[in-house]
Amino acid sequence: MTTPIISVRNVVNRFGRQVVHDGVDLDVQTGEVLGIVGGSGSGKSVLLRTMLGLHRPSAGEVLIEGRDLLQMSEAELIAVKRRYGVTFQQGALFSSLTVAQNVQLPIHEYFAASNAALEQLAELRLRMVGLPVDAGAKLPSQLSGGMIKRAALARALALDPALLFLDEPTAGLDPISAAEFDQLVLYLQRSLNLTIVMITHDLDTLVTTCNRVAVLVDRKIVVDTLDGIMNNPHPWIQEYFHGPRARAVQGPERGQ
């Protein structure tokens, strides 16, 4: 088995007396789409922030391509961060910059590209996520929810990352836009051979895009294929995948 692109080893996260993670292990293999689910407050975002190096865990280690994120020097960290893109739940687009400038910002930070090249490269990203080119001149406040998600994805793709983190990519979208977004993510993942880690509550997204699912329950993590997880006897997981809102997912084609 090849070295996982990211592996989380025995991570413990404590806030005061509250223990969020108590020995979490997770390997993300190159080229897979991993979905992270869990109840509110189960520490999905904390886990994501730990993997991004934004949060230092109380114990344990995070390895990126076999190297410990917590031991890296500033320069190494920057080199690693270049290789992954992140979209945040609310988009986190810089509200005073246009969409195109948002996409150009990371490129401009790292490379000495001319303005013409920056514009060209931003256009490529906007086309990749299916935004009309004239959306580039708009401010984030002028975009609809779905377009903000796409613009955030375009910015995450700015540095041609190998690894994408998506935090609730389809939350707040109508089912049609959400389905389109799922297809877009899948299309980009296949075309560019991306590795994707996403937090999602959208069961349809899980079914459509994810190869494997990680469930955060009882301060631990359970990782399996979707089918494996659905047959997991843990009561919370049963409730999650077989509760009233999950019927549609089981649907005829997955019928019990």
Binding site: Y110, F111, A117
Partner: peptide
């Protein structure tokens, strides 16, 4: 031909 060399590519 990578983004890293964007200035030289240009």
């Amino acid at each position: 031909w990578r983004l890293d060399n964007v200035a030289q590519l240009e």
